[in-house]
Amino acid sequence: MARALITMPATAKRGEIVEIRTLIAHPMETGYRAGDDGQLLPRNILRRFSCRYDGEQVFSAELFPAVAANPYLTFCTIATVSGTLEFTWEGDRGFAQTERVALTVAA
């Protein structure tokens, strides 16, 4: 049940700074906690997030065990051309999720 919420404007003027806010459901299990049976729970975290705008990477982040569950990441980019923003989260256990949001840029 991987869910993601992306909040950003659908349209922007060319050259305008666009704020993008992302939230994804993920347990971010650190690998340092013990479960009910006293055994360490295996690590299960997101390792990397990236955002490509019209094919070009505009933002990326590395995530570590200290990041809380359901990571919230926010960043800005400059609107240049109408296109698709592609958000990718990758993590342990082969976790990979991609979301796409269109941005229309008016001259």
């Binding site: 919420l5 806010r21 939230l23």
Partner: peptide, 8 residues
């Protein structure tokens, strides 16, 4: 709501 994880 964009930050509130409960919205997931």
């Amino acid at each position: 709501d964009a930050q509130n994880p409960a919205m997931l």
